[in-house]
Measured scan of single mutants.
Amino acid sequence: GEEMDTAEIARQVKEQLIKHNIGQRIFGHYVLGLSQGSVSEILARPKPWNKLTVRGKEPFHKMKQFLSDEQNILALRSIQGR
């Protein structure tokens, strides 16, 4: 696969979550399948791509996919709003 700019992906995700008022817990649960603790760690201190294991890269693939389609963001927003 291609190398990803993990810091940039994390920054964009944080931006979207704040902009749409989506909590990290909801994002972690529905998008990444991770706990809030793992999510906040990944978003606060993303490791460089070449330092990640295959498993460590997974959340970034999912985040990139999440960012690529605004429908994903809107869907999360409606879950959050319940």
Rank of each mutant, 00 (worst) to 15 (best):
N50E: 10
V54A: 15
A44Y: 10
I22T: 02
E41Y: 04
R82Q: 15
K14V: 12
I26S: 08
K62I: 08
H29S: 10
V54F: 10
L32E: 01
S38V: 15
L67M: 06
R82M: 11
T6R: 01
F66Y: 00
M4D: 05
K57W: 03
L32D: 02
S35P: 14
I22N: 02
H29C: 09
V39I: 07
A75V: 09
I79H: 13
A44M: 14
M4L: 13
E70A: 12
Q24K: 11
G28D: 05
L34R: 04
P46G: 02
A7Y: 10
K64E: 08
K57G: 03
E70S: 10
L34H: 06
I18W: 09
A44N: 15
L67R: 00
E41S: 06
T53R: 02
L17F: 01
H20Q: 05
L67F: 05
I42H: 04
P46E: 01
P46T: 03
F66R: 00
L76Y: 00
E8K: 09
L32A: 02
Q80P: 10
L74A: 12
P48N: 04
R45Y: 10
P46Y: 03
I26N: 06
S40Q: 13
W49K: 01
H29I: 08
L52G: 00
S68R: 08
L43Y: 02
R11F: 06
L76S: 02
I79K: 14
K19G: 03
F66V: 01
E2I: 06
W49L: 04
E2W: 07
G33F: 01
V31N: 02
S35D: 15
A75R: 14
K64G: 04
L76P: 03
E41Q: 07
R82K: 15
R25S: 15
P48Y: 01
K51M: 12
H29R: 11
E58G: 05
Q24F: 10
F60Y: 13
P48A: 09
R11L: 07
P48T: 06
R11T: 08
D69A: 08
G1D: 14
K47R: 10
K57C: 04
L34Y: 06
R11A: 08
L34A: 07
I79C: 13
S38L: 13
Q71H: 08
H20W: 10
G37F: 10
V31F: 06
G37S: 14
Q36K: 14
Q80N: 12
S68H: 06
E15W: 04
V54H: 12
R11E: 07
V31G: 02
F27E: 01
Q24P: 10
V31R: 00
R55F: 11
K64A: 12
R45A: 14
E58Q: 11
R25N: 13
M63P: 01
A10S: 08
N50M: 07
A7K: 13
V31D: 01
K19P: 02
S68V: 05
R45W: 07
I79W: 10
R11K: 15
P59R: 13
E3N: 09
E41V: 04
S35Q: 12
S68L: 10
L32F: 00
Q71W: 06
E70K: 10
I26M: 10
S35G: 12
M4S: 05
A44P: 02
S40D: 15
P46V: 05
Q71E: 14
R11G: 07
E3Q: 10
Q65F: 04
L43E: 01
I42C: 06
I73R: 03
R45Q: 12
V13W: 02
G33V: 01
S40E: 15
V39D: 02
S35I: 05
Q65N: 13
K14G: 06
G56N: 07
I22H: 00
A10T: 10
L34E: 07
R45L: 06
Q65K: 10
I9M: 06
G1N: 12
A75D: 15
I73K: 04
L43M: 06
F60G: 00
I26G: 03
I26P: 03
H20D: 02
K19M: 06
V54Y: 12
L52K: 00
G37I: 08
E8L: 10
K64D: 04
Q24A: 09
V54L: 14
R45F: 13
V13E: 03
F27Y: 00
E3Y: 10
P48E: 09
V13A: 04
E70P: 14
K51R: 11
K57I: 06
G37Q: 15
E2P: 04
V39T: 15
Q65E: 14
H29M: 11
I22Y: 00
R82C: 11
V39R: 00
E2R: 07
D69W: 04
S68A: 11
S68T: 09
D5G: 04
R11W: 04
S35F: 09
S78D: 15
F66P: 02
T53G: 12
E58I: 06
N72A: 14
H20P: 02
Q71P: 02
F60S: 01
L67V: 06
K51I: 13
E58R: 06
V54K: 14
F66K: 01
P59E: 15
V39K: 01
Q80T: 10
E41C: 07
H29Q: 14
E70M: 08
L74Q: 13
Q24T: 11
G37R: 14
A75E: 15
T53Y: 01
E2F: 09
Y30P: 02
Q36C: 08
S78V: 08
N21L: 01
P59S: 15
F66A: 02
V39M: 06
R25A: 15
G28W: 02
H61P: 02
R45V: 07
D69M: 07
V54W: 08
Q24L: 14
L76D: 02
P46L: 05
E15L: 12
D5E: 08
M63K: 00
L17Q: 03
